[in-house]
């Protein structure tokens, strides 16, 4: 639950109710302003982007579109420093799917008609998804503010980390003039969602949630492990163009839990070897 619920089990239900109420108060307060002049660009873009989201899930159901639009618009209005950034729309999906899956079998999710759920259940799912996404974004907000300093910094850190853990891969990329920003920007901006299937993202984020600073700090080690995972393919590729196309289209379509488990194990190993030793980052 993204740490927005109290540790005390007895207080959970009431907090949950309060948070849900609070969310719908936001909706009441702000949602009508979506067509106001100063907000209509934000709303328009959200409206355009939602049908363009990951086609794996519940796509284009009017009910889902409606819920996602509200969640994203409210978040954008409440966070004017960053506002809506393309990519944030992706981040709602894993939470939404996990909450929906509490009510149905996981296999059904692709063909499930969301509007068949009771209205109250849907409202709870919507509010809970909003708070989870908010909490997630709180930890990485500088990823989405002007000039995206968080991402620039993390890509730089990834580069330094990789140069320490696999100098050969690092040098190979450097020799062929491949820049980390050219492929890893998206890894940071979308928390690897665009690089692996949704089922893997959910598994991955589940671990991030249980790690302190999972979505910011630990993610870096996962990215490093993810890059090095392809070292053989990378080293075989001797051409800038082929390398970049490979790195932007990594073959993970058939990935499952096992692949993520291996990736996470490697990330933990790296973290253990390199964490809290910032000098290890530096050359």
């Amino acid at each position: 639950f993204q740490g927005y619920l109290p540790a005390n089990v007895d207080r959970r239900e009431s907090t949950l109710q309060r948070k849900r109420k609070e969310y719908f108060a936001f909706v009441e307060q702000y949602y009508d302003s979506r067509n106001d002049e100063n907000h209509q660009d934000t709303y328009r873009q959200i409206h355009i982007d939602i049908p363009r989201m990951s086609p794996e899930v519940l796509r284009l159901q009017p009910k889902v579109t409606e819920i996602f639009e509200r969640i994203l618009f409210i978040w954008a209005i409440r966070h004017p420093a960053s506002g809506y950034v393309q990519g944030i729309n992706d981040l709602v999906t894993p939470f939404f799917v996990v909450f929906v899956c509490e009510y149905i079998e996981e296999e059904e999710v692709e063909n499930f008609d969301v509007s068949s759920l009771p209205e109250e259940v849907l409202q709870n799912i919507e509010a809970d998804s909003y708070w989870c996404m908010s909490k997630l974004l709180d930890g990485i907000q500088d990823n989405y503010t002007f000039a995206q300093p968080g991402i620039q910094k993390k890509v730089k850190m990834l580069e330094e980390l990789v140069s320490r853990i696999d100098e050969q891969v690092h040098r190979h990329l450097d020799q062929h003039e491949v820049k980390y920003l050219q492929f890893a920007f998206r890894w940071m901006n979308n928390l690897l969602m665009r690089e692996v299937p949704l089922r893997c993202t959910i598994r991955l984020w589940d671990t991030y949630q249980s790690e302190p600073e999972g979505f910011s700090h630990f993610h870096l080690y996962v990215c490093a492990a993810f890059l090095v995972r392809w070292r053989k393919e990378i080293l075989e590729e001797k051409d800038f163009q082929e390398l970049l196309i490979f790195l932007q289209n990594l073959p993970t379509v058939h990935w499952g839990n096992e692949d993520i488990s291996v990736l996470l194990a490697e990330a933990y190993r790296l973290k253990f070897a390199f964490a809290d030793a910032p000098n290890h980052y530096k050359k």
Partner: peptide, 13 residues
């Protein structure tokens, strides 16, 4: 086909 919004930059040859 419907494409996801591009993040940063995509590369083709």
């Amino acid at each position: 086909r419907e494409l996801l919004p591009t993040v940063a930059c995509s590369f083709f040859t």
